[in-house]
Amino acid sequence: MNIFRLSGDVCHLIAIIILFLKIWRSKSCAGISGKSQVLFALVFTTRYLDLFTSYISAYNTVMKVVYLLLAYSTVGLIFFRFRNSYDSESDSFRVEFLLVPVAGLSFLENYAFTPLEILWTFSIYLESVAILPQLFMITKTGEAESITAHYLLFLGLYRALYLANWLWRFHTEGFYDQIAVVSGVVQTIFYCDFFYLYFTRVLRGSGKMSLP
């Protein structure tokens, strides 16, 4: 555990909590892509199956359980409790275009051809593209509330910090997880355009972030 990894995990947690509280307090999930949230719940589910097979640390177990609980609670808020506010018209990204290639790739390129390994690989690949329905929705509606932008900022920070973590681990331990690193780089690239918009519009302007 290093400072980049720890702050990355904390940013990830903050992002998930920001989103959950936003929906809970405003009693609305307007502007939020339910599809992205279902994909993230699927990411956590398929990756954390090792909760049942291997123990790493109390920190690891607690964080996994918290991520899972929050992910499913958020999905529950969007599709059940506050489903009247769910904007399914704008959330029109075709997720099969992500799921099919990601599933195919996880069968082709993995560390071992076993069910758990393939599901873990699937989760890594899926996480790298799971935010696309949300970014697509923002592009389609042309704007995002600043709180949604804060959520995306913390998710992006989490990714960037994990890149720093991998650089650090490679230099100090010689640790190198090829699948995670390559997917992580791809995932972080998706946030670059958003980072630019965040710093030029949300921080300088007020309220909503509009796309050109």
């Binding site: 995990d9 690891n60 560390y111 071992a112 190198y176 997880d177």
Partner: peptide
């Protein structure tokens, strides 16, 4: 098969 690293990250 590729070499399998320890999966201690979240």
């Amino acid at each position: 098969e590729n070499q399998k690293p320890q999966k201690d990250e979240l």
